[in-house]
Every structure is written in structure tokens, then in C-alpha cells.
């Protein structure tokens, strides 16, 4: 009896740990969650303070903004018209899937050895971004043609991000101040400073000012050959 009770307690503890995801610490506008456990399989509107679990899909509608605090210690700011799936939130092994739109990620700093594996992974349909540092921005870009994957953009504010193409295995390390483009979700460009990322709003602390990001991914596509001045 006692054993059964202990097993029950342990089961309760581990099931909570296993499913624990994080918390919604800021919500503006229409922020919705599709819970993995919910029977209805429909997105439900949520407010600040809502608990998130592994497997949940968090979605922001047009004009909305959400900041997630994951149990592993990292924070994620989800821009308008975006969605992420929380895959894993164990400390030193956090993983989030970017379904749509763009997000800022701020990874909890910790002491890392030289060969330490990335402690946070952001995945898209075509690339995996392993973070060994603190903050970066990732976004889906344009779908340049039908039946072709969308571009993926990423830039690093602090630390180092290792980007890997899940299909080809191509790996690129991106330092702070640099960014890359995954053209049509395929080839990863060489890292370089991207002018359009200079005005990204990295702030995730409501008390420190405005949280909204006003830079559009369209700015990334400013093509000098396409400009007509006369």
C-alpha cells in the first residue's frame, strides 16, 4: 500500500516535470494556445500568467505580442502573426519549433565548456539553430514562388548560434552582430552584418520600455538592383 502510494506520488511528480513547459509572462492582443492535452483541438485564447506545457502550440494573431518564459530558463518573444511549438524545456536541453512568423529568443546564461552542446535549439521546417549564447532572432521570410519553401532569416544579438540544414547537413556558425538567410529553406548564406536588423527591438522586459518590434521582414528584401531613382 505504502509502495503504491509512493509510486503514485512519484508518478505525479514526474508527469508534471515531463509535461511542464513554461508560462506566458506577457500577452498583448489575441494570444492563443492549442494544448496538446486538450480534447477539443482548438486554439483557446489565453492571458498573462497562463501555464504552458510541452507540446503546446502558442500563436499570436495580427497585432498581438507574447512573451514566454520556459522552464529551462529561456525567454521567447513571439511577434505578431507567429506561432511556436514547445518541444522540450529541460535545463540545458530546451527546444522550440518555429511554426510561423518570427521570434526573439533569450537563452539563460550559464557556464559552458568549450565543447558544450547547444543548450537551446530552435527548429524550423528546414534548419536547426543551436544556441550557445544569449539572444537571437529568427523569422520566416517570403515564399518566393509557389511550391517552394519560405526563406528563413536569423541574426544574433549576443553569443553564438550554430545553424544546421536538416536535409543537407550544412553547418554555419553565426556570431553576434551577424545574420544569415536560408534561401528557400535550402542553402545557408555566409554570415554577415545585415543592415535591416539594426533596429530590431530585443527588449523582453515590460518595465524597461516598449516591447513591440517595428521592423518588418520585408525590409530584408530591399534589393538595390530593383530601386528606380529616375
Amino acid at each position: 500500500m505504502r509502495l503504491a502510494f509512493i509510486l503514485l506520488i512519484l508518478f505525479f511528480i514526474f508527469s508534471n516535470i515531463a509535461s511542464a513547459g513554461g508560462k506566458l509572462i506577457y500577452a498583448k492582443g489575441n494570444v492563443e494556445v492549442l494544448s496538446k492535452k486538450a480534447k477539443s483541438k482548438m486554439f483557446q485564447k489565453v492571458k498573462k500568467g497562463a501555464t504552458l506545457e510541452i507540446g503546446d502550440i502558442v500563436r499570436t494573431r495580427k497585432g498581438a505580442l507574447a512573451i514566454l518564459s520556459l522552464d529551462g530558463g529561456s525567454k521567447l518573444k513571439l511577434n505578431p502573426d507567429s506561432a511556436v511549438t514547445i518541444k522540450n524545456t529541460q535545463k540545458n536541453n530546451e527546444e522550440v519549433f518555429l511554426n510561423k512568423g518570427s521570434a526573439f529568443i533569450n537563452v539563460l546564461k550559464s557556464k559552458l565548456t568549450k565543447d558544450a552542446k547547444p543548450k537551446f535549439n530552435l527548429r524550423t521546417k528546414t534548419v536547426s539553430m543551436g544556441v550557445r549564447g544569449t539572444s537571437f532572432f529568427a523569422s520566416y521570410g517570403k515564399q518566393q514562388k509557389k511550391k517552394v519553401r519560405k526563406d528563413v532569416w536569423m541574426c544574433v544579438n549576443e553569443g553564438l548560434v550554430e545553424v544546421q540544414n536538416v536535409k543537407s547537413g550544412q553547418k554555419v556558425s553565426v556570431k553576434a552582430g551577424e545574420g544569415i538567410k536560408v534561401d528557400k529553406g535550402d542553402k545557408i548564406s555566409d554570415p554577415k552584418p545585415l543592415a535591416w536588423t539594426q533596429k530590431l527591438n530585443w527588449n523582453m522586459d515590460e518595465s524597461k520600455g516598449d516591447l513591440d518590434n517595428k521592423v518588418s521582414i520585408e525590409d530584408a528584401y530591399s534589393d538595390p538592383l530593383d530601386q528606380d531613382y529616375d
Binding site: 543592415a195 535591416w196 539594426q198 533596429k199 525590409d219 530591399s222 538595390p224 531613382y229
Partner: peptide, 13 residues
Amino acid sequence: THIYMGKSGPLFN
């Protein structure tokens, strides 16, 4: 044409 780039994009031509 030379496009001089500032921190947040083209500054002058």
C-alpha cells in the same frame, strides 16, 4: 550609381 549604406539601410546615392 554608388549607394552609401548607413546603419539601417541606404543613406544617400
